[in-house]
C-alpha cells in the first residue's frame, strides 16, 4: 500500500467511487459517523451502493441522507430500527431497499476477517436462530458453530479524531467503534479527521490504526450536533 494521500476537501477524498460499490461506513448511531465524507459521496453521485454499517441512519443526516438520496440498493447492518430511523423504515416498507440483518459481533468479526485474510470462520453466535438458517454448522469440542464469511468493502468511510501526515490514526472515546475494523477491510480506506498533525507527533504506542490501512485523509471542521440528535 502506498502512502496515504492528504487531500484538501471531502469532495476530493471520495472521487472515483463507482456505482455498485460496497461501502463500509463507520459509526454507532451518530458517534463516529463520517458526516462530511457521506455528504461528499451524495454530491459525488455514486449509486446502486451496498452499505455496511451498524445502523441504517438517524434523522435525515449522514447515512440517512445517503439513503434518502436513493443511492443505496442494500444495507447490511445489525440494528436498522431506531426511534429516528424513519428514512430507512419508509424505504424498507416501500420495498425500495434490501436489508440483511447481521448480529453486531458478526458484522465486526466478518470485517475483521476480511482485513486479516481469513477465508471464513466458525462462530457460536446465532446457532439455532433464524439468522443461521441455511448456513453450514459444525460441532467443535461439543459446541455448535456457524460458518461465517468475511465482509469486504470496496471503500471504507471512517471518522477518526486525529491523523498524522502518514495516515496513522487515533480515535476519540466510543466514536472509535467500527472505524479500526473497517479501515482494514476495504480496498480503499478514506478517513475524515478533526486534526492532522505532523509525522512523529502521535505517540507510536497509542496509535490505534497504523498508516498502512489508510489511503486518503481529509481534515474537516469539528461538527457540533445536539445531544437529542444522538439518541
Amino acid at each position: 500500500m502506498s502512502r496515504a494521500q492528504l487531500l484538501d476537501s471531502a469532495d476530493e477524498a471520495v472521487t472515483g467511487i463507482e456505482d455498485g460499490s460496497t461501502i463500509l461506513i463507520g459509526g454507532f448511531g451518530l458517534a463516529g459517523m463520517p458526516f462530511d465524507l457521506i455528504d461528499a459521496l451524495i454530491r459525488q453521485g455514486a449509486t446502486d451502493l451496498t452499505v455496511v454499517a451498524n445502523n441504517a441512519g438517524n434523522g435525515e443526516v449522514g447515512l440517512a441522507a445517503l439513503l434518502q438520496a436513493g443511492r443505496v440498493r442494500k444495507v447490511l447492518c445489525s440494528f436498522p430500527r431506531q426511534v429516528d430511523s424513519y428514512v430507512f423504515d419508509e424505504l424498507y416498507r416501500a420495498g425500495r431497499i434490501e436489508l440483511e440483518v447481521v448480529p453486531q459481533g458478526n458484522l465486526a468479526e466478518r470485517m475483521r476477517a476480511a482485513g486479516a485474510g481469513i477465508g471464513a470462520f466458525f462462530c457460536p453466535t446465532g446457532v439455532g436462530t433464524p439468522l443461521a438458517e441455511g448456513k453450514e454448522t459444525r460441532t467443535i469440542e461439543g459446541r455448535d458453530y456457524v460458518l461465517e464469511y468475511p465482509i469486504k468493502g470496496d471503500y471504507a468511510l471512517v471518522s477518526a479524531y486525529r491523523a498524522d501526515a502518514m495516515g496513522n490514526l487515533v480515535y476519540r472515546r466510543t466514536a472509535r467503534n467500527f472505524g479500526p475494523v473497517m479501515a482494514t477491510a476495504a480496498t480503499t480506506t478514506i478517513v475524515q479527521v478533526g486534526e492532522v498533525v505532523p509525522i512523529g507527533a502521535l505517540d507510536p504506542e497509542a496509535i490505534v490504526t497504523p498508516s498502512i490501512y489508510v489511503d486518503r485523509i481529509v481534515q474537516v471542521e469539528a461538527r457540533h450536533y445536539t445531544v437529542e440528535g444522538a439518541r
Binding site: 436498522p80 430500527r81 424498507y92 436489508l99 447481521v102 448480529p103 453486531q104 446457532v127
Partner: peptide, 13 residues
C-alpha cells in the same frame, strides 16, 4: 423491521 443488534452475541457470550 428485524433488528438484532448485539443480542445474539450477548446471549451466548
Amino acid at each position: 423491521i428485524p433488528a438484532v443488534g448485539g443480542a445474539m452475541d450477548l446471549a451466548i457470550g
